Structures are given as C-alpha cells and as structure tokens.
Simulated scan of single mutants.
Amino acid sequence: MTIDEIMMVAPVIPVLVIDDAAHARPVAEALVAGGLPVLEVTLRTPAALDAMREMARVPGAIVGAGTVLNARDVAACADAGARFIVSPGLTAPLVAAVTESGIPFLPGIATAGDIMRGLDAGLTRFKFFPAETSGGLPALRALAAPFGMARFCPTGGITAASAPAWLAEPHVKCVGGSWIVPRGAPDGAAIEAAARAASALRPAAP
C-alpha cells in the first residue's frame, strides 16, 4: 500500500504507546474489530518493536511505526515488519533512510519550510505535528493554501470532540489520535467501542 492508500483506510489512525508487548495483540484485535485497522506504534517504550511484531499477526491490521527519528530506527522498524513509517519531523538523513527502505513514509511538518523540503524529496503526504500547539486549524489552513498537492494527517492534542472539525478540512485525509487507547492493561470492549465511534466520524475519502 502507498501512504496515500493507508491514510484513506479510516478517518483516525490510533497513536499507540505500548508498555507491555503482551498487551499488543488484544489492543490490535479490539481496534481492528472497531474499524480502525491502521495502527501507529510509537517508539517511546522498550516494548514497541515486539508490540509491532505481535500486532502484525492480527488479521486485517496494518501496523506502522511512529516516533521514528533516524536511520537506526528505520532499520529496526523494517525488521519488525512495519508497513509504514511516521516521524515527528523531517530531516534529509531520515528521508534518505526511509526512501532506501521502500517503506511508505508520513513525515512530521509544522512550517512551510518543512513542507517545501518534503516536496523537494518527492513527498506530498505529511503529518501536521503537534497540531494543536502549532496553531490548530487556522495554522493548517494557512499552511495548506500554497501547497495544493499536499495532504495531511494532523496529530497532537486532537480529541474525539475536535476530530470532526479537522476531518472536515479538504486537505485533511485522516487524523492521528491517542484518545482511543489509554496506556496500561487494555480493556478490549472499551477500546473497540471507542474505535467504532472514531471510525464513524467521517468516511475516508479520496
């Protein structure tokens, strides 16, 4: 799948912080059952890579890696079976490493310069991060205006209440959200219910 296709699967990509790899499979099963099969496992804990491997075994799950910072992270995530890469920012060495890996890439941007550097590298799909503290919807609208070819996945501070406003923006293909899965031992029923509600916020559109 291309990064564009991945962004179109569902309106919300759960942003996951997994502290115990034993939690990974039940979390993934609940999210897939709730209609959110695209899963971003952040590299914020020692369990992250093992969690990716476990989640990848769940039928229907499209498991990627978040908080990817450098070539070493890219290699480790590729080895863990990541199907896409998400980063908080955009640097030339990271772009080179991800390009060499062939894994679809969603780099983080917060400025017009970031977007221009991404476009120079052949990228047109970006994570707007951190969305709320970088100016929120007004900032994204202003950034998107000169870059008609770019599409975004805002992440950072977005909630179930604010997500619909973001998703209504024509330049937004999906949002990233951490509200669906709290840290700690998973409550499968609660996660599935939250995922079902999030998956209904807005059908993904081309």
Results as ranks from 00 to 15, higher is better:
Gly148Phe: 00
Ala200Asp: 07
Val181Ile: 06
Pro186Thr: 02
Ala189Tyr: 01
Gly188Arg: 05
Glu132Leu: 10
Arg202Cys: 08
Gly156Met: 09
Trp179Val: 03
Arg202Ala: 15
Leu143Tyr: 10
Ala131Tyr: 09
Asp187Ile: 12
Phe147Asn: 11
Ser178Asn: 05
Leu167Pro: 01
Pro138Asn: 06
Gly148Met: 05
Pro186His: 06
Leu167Phe: 08
Thr133Asn: 02
Lys173Asn: 05
Ala145Lys: 04
Ala165Lys: 09
Leu137Glu: 13
Gly156Leu: 10
Val175Cys: 10
Ser199Gly: 13
Ala195Ser: 04
Ala185Gly: 00
Cys153Lys: 07
Ala142Lys: 11
Ala131Met: 11
Ser134Glu: 00
Met149Glu: 15
Trp179Met: 01
Gly177Met: 00
Ala190Ser: 09
His171Trp: 00
Gly157Ser: 13
Gly148Tyr: 01
Pro146Tyr: 02
Ser178Ala: 07
Val181Met: 02
Pro154Met: 11
Pro164Tyr: 07
Gly148Ser: 09
Thr159Pro: 02
Gly177Pro: 03
Ala160Thr: 12
Pro170His: 01
Ser162Asp: 06
Ile191Phe: 00
Ile180Leu: 14
Ala185Gln: 07
Leu137Ala: 13
Arg183Ile: 02
Ala145Asp: 05
Ala144His: 12
Leu143Phe: 10
Val172Glu: 03
Phe152Cys: 14
Ala185Met: 04
Ala194Ser: 12
Pro146Met: 00
Gly177Ser: 05
Val175Pro: 01
Ala163Cys: 15
Asp187Trp: 07
Ala161Lys: 13
Ser178Arg: 05
Gly188Ala: 15
Ala189Ser: 08
Ser134Pro: 00
Lys173Thr: 12
Arg202Tyr: 04
Ala131Pro: 11
Ala163His: 14
Trp179Asn: 02
Val181Glu: 04
Pro138Met: 03
Ala197Tyr: 10
Glu169His: 14
Met149Asp: 15
Glu192Asn: 04
Leu143Ile: 10
Trp166Asn: 04
Thr159Val: 02
Lys173Arg: 12
Ala160Arg: 14
Arg151Val: 14
Ser178Leu: 06
Arg151Glu: 15
Arg196Phe: 12
Ser178Tyr: 06
Val172Ile: 07
Leu140Asn: 12
Arg151Thr: 11
Pro182Val: 02
Ala193Gln: 11
Phe152Asp: 14
Ala165Tyr: 05
Val172Gly: 09
Gly184Arg: 07
Ala144Lys: 12
Ala198Trp: 07
Gly188Asn: 00
Cys153Thr: 13
Val181Thr: 10
Arg196Ser: 15
Ala160Ser: 14
Ala161Thr: 14
Cys174Arg: 06
Glu132Cys: 12
Leu140Lys: 12
Ala131Arg: 07
Gly135Tyr: 05
Ala161Ile: 11
Arg183Lys: 08
Arg196Gln: 14
Ala131Asn: 09
Asp187Tyr: 08
Ala198Phe: 08
Thr155Lys: 04
His171Glu: 10
Glu192Tyr: 04
Phe152Thr: 13
Ala189Arg: 07
Ala145Thr: 08
Ala200Trp: 06
Ala165Ser: 15
Trp166Arg: 00
Cys153Val: 12
Ser162Glu: 02
Cys153Asn: 11
Ala189Leu: 06
Ser162Trp: 01
Arg183Gly: 08
Ala193Leu: 08
Ala195Trp: 01
Gly136Phe: 08
Cys153Gly: 04
Ala198Pro: 09
Ala165Asn: 11
Asp187Leu: 11
Pro146Thr: 03
Ala185Cys: 00
Ala198Asp: 09
Leu201Pro: 13
Ser162Met: 04
Pro138Gln: 03
